[in-house]
Design a protein around this nucleic acid. Structure first.
Length: 313
RNA sequence: GCCGAGGUAGCUCAGUUGGUAGAGCACAGGACUGAAAAUCCUGGUGUCGGCGGUUCGAGUCCGCCCCUCGGCA
């Protein structure tokens, strides 16, 4: 572990104010921000992904935002690589890396271990996906009973991935998981944001209305022509529902209702996932102003030895 | 005050000829190793307005009371 000093990692469900906190901390700690967000990576998905606004990005350098075409594929190990590159570059500049994000698996890639197996092969994947799940499941039970035990019979995504790994390497994925563990070479001080569930949901609902007022529908219209359902960017909350509306499948009101619902469900999944992340300094943002929140987190970091500058402005 | 309709889950409601209640929405818990804002699993959460009565048994039938919404005064 080559970490003289840890970097900072801010995690938590959507709409808790992570981005703003990150910028404020970057200013007090002379840092730069690395986004761990599997949708903010794409250009043109701007309003719906709640990217930090330009004026914040001008104040503090942000990395891994807006660097991919929405038609491109990306995955967690590419993220791991890109994040590592960015992190080392920031450190080389003598600055503090601050990772911020809500993409659960991306966070895990930085705090946990991954296996050195093969990456996705679109051709194999496509071929496997064409088969009915029952058949894929049967095959998984034959080649990797251990994985079959952990993967639910209905979970096609994981079934396909397991079969793909086996086809590419001849080694069952369960063995990969057991025998190949590569940790991320840097440690993080983890700050987790929480918010009273009810307030969080209200905030999500309000934010969706705000996104629509800002022109989310126009953005979705422009994207509809370029994206197909196979592309990850297509499956983005706030866009997929509007695509359905634009295709005449559901009403506008229904689309809006679904965006809110899906975002709430997403936030809940994030909460559950992050719960098991070890060593997080949890900070409850309920009832606190932006300033109070920043002060509280600054205090925590100061106690941990970070050189927090007091901005008496 | 009179007439009518109604009080069942957080909300909107369904509930056969009496057999200790269920649907949508909302919500809760969980899984997760290269698609992760993805994918998948589990869960009905209840003084059936209240009190009595009939009955082996009442959300359901009877009586009284309370409350809500219409209409007439």
């Amino acid at each position: 572990m080559k970490s003289e000093q840890s970097s900072v990692l801010i995690l938590g469900p959507t709409a808790t104010g992570k981005s703003e906190l990150a910028v404020a901390l970057a200013q007090r700690l002379d840092g730069e921000i690395i986004s761990a967000d599997a949708r903010a990576i794409y250009k043109e998905l701007t309003i719906g992904t709640a990217k930090p606004p330009l004026h914040l990005r001008e104040r503090v350098p942000h990395h891994l935002i807006d660097f991919l075409e929405p038609t491109q594929r990306y995955d967690v190990m590419q993220f791991r690589h890109d994040a590592l590159t960015a992190l080392e570059a920031i450190r080389a500049r003598g600055k503090l890396p601050i990772v911020v994000g809500g993409s659960t698996l991306y966070i895990s890639a930085l705090t946990g271990t991954f296996f050195a197996g093969p990456k996705a092969d679109p051709r194999i994947r496509q071929r496997l996906e064409a088969h009915p799940q029952e058949l894929l499941r049967k095959r998984l039970e034959e080649i990797d009973p251990q994985a079959a035990q952990r993967i639910h019979p209905n979970d096609k995504v994981r079934t396909v991935r397991a079969l793909e790994v086996f086809e590419l390497t001849g080694v069952p994925i369960s063995r990969w998981h057991k025998e190949s563990k590569i940790p991320f070479p840097y440690k993080f001080t983890k700050i987790g944001l929480t918010l009273d569930r009810k307030i969080l949901y209200e905030r999500i609902n309000a934010r969706v209305d705000q996104m629509l007022a800002q022109g989310l529908l126009e953005e979705a219209k422009a994207l509809r022509a370029k994206l197909t359902p196979e592309m990850p960017a297509y499956r983005t909350i706030g866009y997929e529902e509007l695509f359905q509306y634009l295709d005449g499948e559901i009403s506008y009101d229904e689309a809006v209702r679904l965006i809110k619902k899906h975002t709430r469900e997403y936030a809940k999944r994030q909460i559950i996932y992050f719960k098991r992340e070890p060593g997080v300094h949890w900070v409850d943002a309920t009832g606190k102003s932006q300033g109070q929140l920043i002060d509280e987190v600054s205090r925590i970091l100061k106690e941990l030895g970070y050189p927090v500058q007091d901005l008496a402005s």
